[in-house]
Amino acid sequence: MSEHSLELKGSLFPLSVLHCSDLSISSLQSLLTAKLAQAPAFFYQAPLVINLQDNDSNPDFAALKQLFTELKLVLVGVTGANAAQKAAAQQAGLAVLQAGKSNTAKAVEPAPQSPAPERSAPAQVVVQQQAMDSKIVEQNVRSGQQIYAKGADLIIKGAVGAGAEVIADGNIHIYGSLRGKAIAGASGDSSKRIYCYNMQAELVSIAGNYWLSHSLQGEFWGKPACIRWQGESLVISELV
C-alpha cells in the first residue's frame, strides 16, 4: 500500500523535565553528573526537556545541547520559555514545547512537598521522572505482534501467541498463556520478573539472560509460573 510510505500521527510520550535555576554550563555539569551517578542506567539516553519557567536568563542552548550529549542524555526541547528564550532555543535546533495542563502555571508548584524547598535553594537540580508506569494490554497478543513497555511494567490480560514478542523494562505479567517470547528487564535490570498463568514460552529472558523452551519443558510447562534471576541463573517457580 504505497500511500502508507509516509504518515504523520500525533502521539504522546513521557518525557523527563529538568528544573534548574542555574543553567550555567559548569554548575549544571557537576549537578547533573552527581544526579546521574545515582542511577546511570535509568537516565541513559533519556530524552529531556528543560523547564525555563522560573528562569529569566538566556542560557547558551548550543552549549547545553553539547553538555547533554556528553552526559549521554538527549536534550529535545524547552518549555515555559519567554520570547527571547524561545528564539534562542529554536536557533539551537530545540523544540519549544507547550507544557501539558497539569504542568502549567502554578499547578506544578504545590504538588510535591520535598522538591519545593530544594528548588528555592540556589542551583539545585530536580529531575522529575514519572514513577515506574504500567502498560496494559487488554486483548491477546497475536503472532507477529511486538509490544514494548519502555520504562514500565507490562500487563497482558490475554494470551501471547507463538511468534509474538512482549518486552518490558520492568516486570511482565501475563494472565493468559505465554506461547511466544517474553523479555523482562530489557534495559538491564535483573531484579525484574516474568509472571504468567500458563507457561509454554518460546523464550523467556531477564536482563539479557534467556531460556529457550526446552529449558522450560519440565514441571511447570503449561502451568502458572514465575521466572526470576537468582544468583547466577534463571529460576522458575510456581506462582502461588
Partner: peptide, 13 residues
Amino acid sequence: VRDSDRILGMLSS
C-alpha cells in the same frame, strides 16, 4: 493455526 493468529493480529490493528 499460527498463520491465523497472525492474521487475527492484523485484523485488530
